[in-house]
Design a protein around this nucleic acid. Structure first.
Length: 486
RNA sequence: GGCGCUAUCGUCUAGGGGACUAGGACGGGGCCCUCUCAAGGCCCAAACACGGGUUCGAAUCCCGUUAGCGCUACCA
């Protein structure tokens, strides 16, 4: 297993929505790197776009990361608070001649772009457009004319390249990089400048982010060089796409991690699934805890190809984690969901702890999400149940016959010498035999009586879990329901 | 259009010159287990994008083509 140096890494979301699954995965890989090889995982909120940034969104990002268990090691940095340093960096670039002022109005630029396009030409920014005689620049400056600051891309014939941790060497000819804006006419910095300035200030040594930033990287490298600072290492992670191969968006279903949280997904399953979307430990290893992923993590296993988000596999993964995790870890999650659903209070569940854990254990094996457990728990926690129409239609089709079966069942249950699975099974199989039918013919209608459903754990487990009083009450309710008077 | 990135079953992937009759997982189909549903076990269908090289030998290395994606802003 190869080794890698410790690093200061950062996750830098912009607070303009919720924590996206793609962002969560980027955060995860950064976090994993630091946990495996040492260093610090930092969080920076890129809130320079005041119009789109909201506190609510910032909150959602924190909540999402906390839910996933991806804690950060130092206080959160807000990019918007670093405006003065960004301007100072721009000024030093201006002073050293590595950047220049461009008084060209935005409308003119747009016009040129449109013209080029109309003529079928490739639009390319030309530095000469901004060149002004010294005295005129001075004049405009004094007059307070608006201008942007552009970075002077160096060495026309050179190339800017780096060894990416995910890809190999990536190279861009400098001639393909236009002089880009680093300071807007309203004196706020543009992304590339702000990022570099902040990464330098935060001592970031490894930049791991989505590969939609690949073409920003040469610009950022040039800025590091111009500012005279050492380069970090770069790792560009592939994107996550929807089932149709397009960039993951709302119409592919939930894209915010908060939605999965509310649907009853387990954070460890989410993490496991996300990790496998773009990383593999090699071999056939799939279901892993965060701790196991941490031990196994290595940038060599990072994928270069965009992955498609498959909700089916996510659900399967959740089911795997639900059945393999310890009952004591699962219990609080289920309890929260049950209490939230109003089925029972925490006190009630607490009072019959052993019984309750057994119930959860019985239900989790046939659940994929936490809500599946809640749904199935109703027949054991509520006094009365509703009959699923399909179940009634299928198992109580012949009402008179069903009535007979259930009456015989009730009598046997009432006569049972003890309320244990083995005893109950012997009793009921005896009833079936006497009636000359197979066990299933008896158990299925009973299942509907007890749970209202055609689906449940084994019928004797259901009986035992419900207990004598409730079970017999349910059967009597069913008998009443089936009586001809109804 | 230009620049860049990518390319193994429908999907996630293993593989890194001979161990490949290309392995695993999800999903699909079937069987077993069975009181239902799950879980589990067994089995089946399903892929190296295409074309050229290099080599005794290519899924693996190189070049090209094609396709997909990203960027091409005074967004991030």
């Amino acid at each position: 297993m190869s080794t890698h140096p410790a690093a200061r890494v950062r996750f830098a979301p912009s607070p303009t929505g919720y924590l996206h699954v793609g962002g969560a995965r980027t955060a995860l890989f950064n976090w994993l790197y630091v946990r495996r090889f040492g260093g610090q995982f930092l969080l920076r909120v890129e809130d320079t776009d005041k119009a789109r940034s909201t506190d609510e969104s910032t909150r959602a990002i924190f909540d999402g990361l906390e839910w996933l268990g991806l804690g950060w090691d130092e206080p959160v940095v807000y990019q918007g608070a670093n405006l003065e340093r960004h301007r100072a960096d721009v000024k030093s670039l201006l002073d050293s001649g590595l950047a220049y002022r461009d008084f060209t109005p935005q409308a003119t630029l747009e016009e040129r772009r449109a013209d080029a396009q109309a003529r079928g030409e490739i639009y390319k920014y030309k530095r000469e457009w901004a060149e002004l005689p010294l005295h005129e620049e001075q004049q405009r400056l004094e007059r307070g004319d608006p201008y942007v600051v552009r970075f002077r891309v160096p060495d026309e014939s050179g190339i800017t390249e780096w060894d990416d941790l995910v890809h190999e060497r990536i190279a861009f000819p400098n001639k393909d990089v236009d002089d880009f804006v680093i300071l807007r006419s309203d004196r706020t910095p543009i992304y590339n400048l702000a990022v570099v300035s902040d990464d330098i200030a935060m001592g970031v040594t490894l930049v791991m982010r989505g590969d939609d930033h690949i073409s920003n990287t040469p610009k950022q490298i040039m800025l590091y060089n111009a500012l005279g600072k050492p380069l970090p290492r770069f790792a560009h992670l592939p994107m996550i796409h929807g089932l149709d191969g397009k960039k993951l968006s709302k119409r592919h279903g939930a894209t915010a991690v908060g939605e999965y949280q509310h649907e009853g997904l387990l954070p460890q399953a989410m993490l496991n699934f996300l990790a496998l979307l773009g990383w593999s430990p090699g071999g056939d290893r799939e279901v892993m805890t965060l701790a196991e992923m941490t031990d196994l993590f290595s940038p060599e296993g990072l994928q270069r190809k965009a992955a498609i988000f498959d909700p089916k596999k996510l659900e399967w993964m959740n089911g795997q984690h639900m059945s393999t995790m310890s009952l004591s870890d699962l219990e609080p999650v289920v309890t929260r969901a049950i209490v939230a659903s109003g089925l029972a209070t925490a006190d009630v569940l607490e009072a019959k702890q052993d019984w309750y854990l057994r119930l959860v254990d019985l239900l989790r094996v046939r659940s994929r999400v936490v809500d599946d457990i809640v749904r199935q728990a109703a027949p054991y926690l509520a006094r009365d149940i509703a009959y699923d129409p399909d179940a009634v239609a299928k198992q109580w089709k012949d009402r008179a016959a069903s009535l007979n079966l259930l009456t015989a069942t009730r009598d046997a249950l009432m006569a049972a010498s003890s309320w244990e699975a083995a005893t109950l099974e012997a009793e009921l199989r005896g009833v079936a035999e006497k009636l000359g039918i197979g066990g299933g013919k008896l158990f299925q209608p009973l299942r509907v009586a007890l749970t209202g459903l055609t689906v449940s754990p084994g019928i004797f487990d259901v009986l035992v879990m419900q207990g004598r009083d409730l079970a017999i009450y349910r059967v009597e309710q069913a008998i009443n329901y089936l009586l001809p008077a109804n």
